[in-house]
C-alpha cells in the first residue's frame, strides 16, 4: 500500500495534485450551476440571434442591451423598460412571467424570453 502511494507521488508532485483538485472542483461546480434547473425559470436575452445574457427570473435587475434597449426583471416579471426603436412596440408588449413568454424588439433584433428549468421546449 505504502509502495503504491509512493508511486503516485513519484509521478505527480504535490503542486500537480493541487492543480488537478482545483480543476475537478471547478468542473463539478460548473456542471452544477449549468445543469441545475432554476426555480421559476430563466430570462434569456438574444441580440441578433445570439444569446446576450441569461439571468434568473428571481433576480431583480436591469439589463442594458448595447444602449439601445433596457430590460427590467422585477418580482418574477420581465418587461422592456427602454427602447430607442421607432414605434416602441416592444415597450407596449407588457410584462411576461410565464415560461414560453416572449418580448420582441424587431427593429433592434432583440428577443427576451422566459425558458423553463425542467422542460426542453414549450408548445
Amino acid at each position: 500500500m505504502k509502495e503504491k502511494a509512493k508511486n503516485i507521488f513519484s509521478v505527480f508532485k504535490w503542486g500537480d495534485l493541487i492543480i488537478l483538485l482545483i480543476l475537478i472542483v471547478s468542473l463539478a461546480l460548473a456542471i452544477y450551476y449549468f445543469a441545475k434547473p432554476q426555480e421559476g425559470g430563466t430570462v434569456e436575452i438574444y441580440l441578433d440571434g445570439k444569446l446576450y445574457r441569461s439571468v434568473s427570473l428571481n433576480q431583480d435587475t436591469e439589463i442594458d442591451i448595447n444602449g439601445h434597449n433596457k430590460v427590467k426583471i422585477e418580482g418574477g416579471e420581465v418587461y422592456m423598460l427602454y427602447s430607442d426603436c421607432d414605434g416602441g412596440d416592444c415597450l407596449k408588449m407588457g410584462k411576461i412571467s410565464k415560461e414560453g413568454g416572449m418580448i420582441v424588439c424587431l427593429p433592434n433584433r432583440v428577443v427576451v424570453k422566459i425558458v423553463s428549468g425542467d422542460l426542453d421546449a414549450i408548445t
Binding site: S97, K98, E99, G100, S116, D118, L119, D120, A121, I122, T123
Partner: peptide
C-alpha cells in the same frame, strides 16, 4: 424531449 404546453391563462 420533455415538452410543456404553454399555460393559456395566467
Amino acid at each position: 424531449y420533455k415538452i410543456g404546453i404553454a399555460s393559456p391563462r395566467e
